[in-house]
Design a protein around this nucleic acid. Sequence first.
DNA 1: TCGTGTGAAGTAGTTCACAGCA
DNA 2: TGCTGTGAACTACTTCACACGA
Lengths: 224, 224
Amino acid sequence: MAEKKRNRDLSGEDLPEKTIGRLSFYRRTLQRLLEEGRERIYSHELAEICGNTPAQVRRDLMAVRNEGSTRKGYDVTMLIQGISEMFEFPIGKKIVLIGVGNLGRALMAFFNRRRPGIVISDCFDVDPKKTKKKILGRRIHPMKEFSRIAAEKQFGMAVLTVPASEAQGVADQIVEEGIVGILNFVPVTLRVPPWVVVEDVDMTMMFERTIYRTHQHLLSGPNK
Amino acid sequence: MAEKKRNRDLSGEDLPEKTIGRLSFYRRTLQRLLEEGRERIYSHELAEICGNTPAQVRRDLMAVRNEGSTRKGYDVTMLIQGISEMFEFPIGKKIVLIGVGNLGRALMAFFNRRRPGIVISDCFDVDPKKTKKKILGRRIHPMKEFSRIAAEKQFGMAVLTVPASEAQGVADQIVEEGIVGILNFVPVTLRVPPWVVVEDVDMTMMFERTIYRTHQHLLSGPNK
DNA sequence: TCGTGTGAAGTAGTTCACAGCA
DNA sequence: TGCTGTGAACTACTTCACACGA
C-alpha cells in the first residue's frame, strides 16, 4: 500500500475523464493490432492510428504504469493487459439492463456477442407487456422482481434505457438494491446518493452536436 | 505571426464542445417546462434542474445572445427559439443512416418519432441481404445506389453504424458524394478531408468509462 | 433588492521540449 | 541515436465575485 508519495501521483488513481475514454479506445486498437501479429509499438505509431499526438499517447499511457518500455516501444500485450485491469468490474458484480425499448434491445444485441469483458447479466422492463415474451432469446424480468433477483445475483451496475418519465423512479429503486454505477441513456438529470456514479449518454445531444459543428464548419472554414 | 486574437467571440461563433452539449440539453429541458406552462426561468432554477451551477448556465446562455432577459429571468420561449436556431441543419440538406444493424435500427426507431428537427431521410446498407426487405416500414437502399440517390436528395450529414471493416470505405464513398458531417458510431478513426466534420461515439468506451469510474469511486470514496 | 452579464481568477487537460536510457 | 517519461508552458473550460439595471 505504501506507494511513493511523490509530487505527481498518477498510478491508477483518478484519471481525467478524457484519458479514460482514450485508453478504452487504445485497448481495442491494440487488440486488433495484436491479432495482426504486432508485438511492439511506438507512441507515434499508436498516435497515428488513433488520430492524436505522440505526446498525448505517452501521457495517457503513464496511467498504465507499464514498465518494460525500452527503446523498442511499448509491448502490445503488456499494454492491453495493463489497460484491461483498469476496466475490470469488481468480481462477482454484474451488469443489468433496464428498459427493453429500441435502444435497450440494440445494446442487448451489441453486447450479446463476445465483447471483451462486458456482459449484460439480466434484463428488466417496467412495461408488463414486454415481460411476457423473450427478447433476443432472453427472458425479460418485470421490475417488481428486481429486488429478489438483485439479492440473488449481486448487481453492481445498471444500464438505464427507460422512458424519461420512469427514470428517476427506477433509479431510486435500483440504488436501494445496491446498484452503485448507472449508465444513463435517459435525458434526465438523475438524483442519486453520493456513493453512486452516474454517467450520462444522450443520443439527441450527439446528433445536435454534429449538426452544429458541421454547420459551423461549413460557414467558417471552407478555406482550410 | 498571425495575430488572430479575437478577444470576445461574436455571438454564435465557435462554441466550446461542452457548451454545445449542454445547450442541447437545456433546450429539451426547457421544452418540457414550457409544456408544463412555465414561461420564465432563472439561471439558478435551470441549473438546479440540469444538475450544474447558475454561473455555468449564464455563461452557456451568453452564446444564445437572447436579449430580453430582465430581472424576471429568461423567457423560456425565446431561449428555446434561440438554441433551436443553432441546431438547425442547412435548409435542404438531409441526414442519412448507413448500416442497418442493431444500433442502426435503434437509431431509426428513435428518430422515427417526432424528435424535434432530427429526421433521417434515407437508410442504406452494404449488405445486400438487408436491402431486400423493408425495416421499420422503410426501404433500405444498397450502397451502390448511394451516388444516384445522393445526387437527387442532397444529403449533408451521415450517421455511420456499419461494421468496422467497412467504415473507412463507406466514409470515402459518401464524402465523395458531398457528405460534410459524419456521426460515427464505429470504433475506428476515420480519415477524411479537412472540410468534413467527424463526431465519434463509442458505446464500448461509454460502458468502460462507467465501469472504471464506478470501481474507482467504490475504492476511493465510500466516506463521501 | 435580486438576478444577469462578464472580467478575472482558478482548475483541468494538452502540447512542448528536453533529459536520460538502451 | 531515437524513443520514452515528464516538468513546464500553454490552452480550454469553470467558477468567483461584483458592477449594473429593472
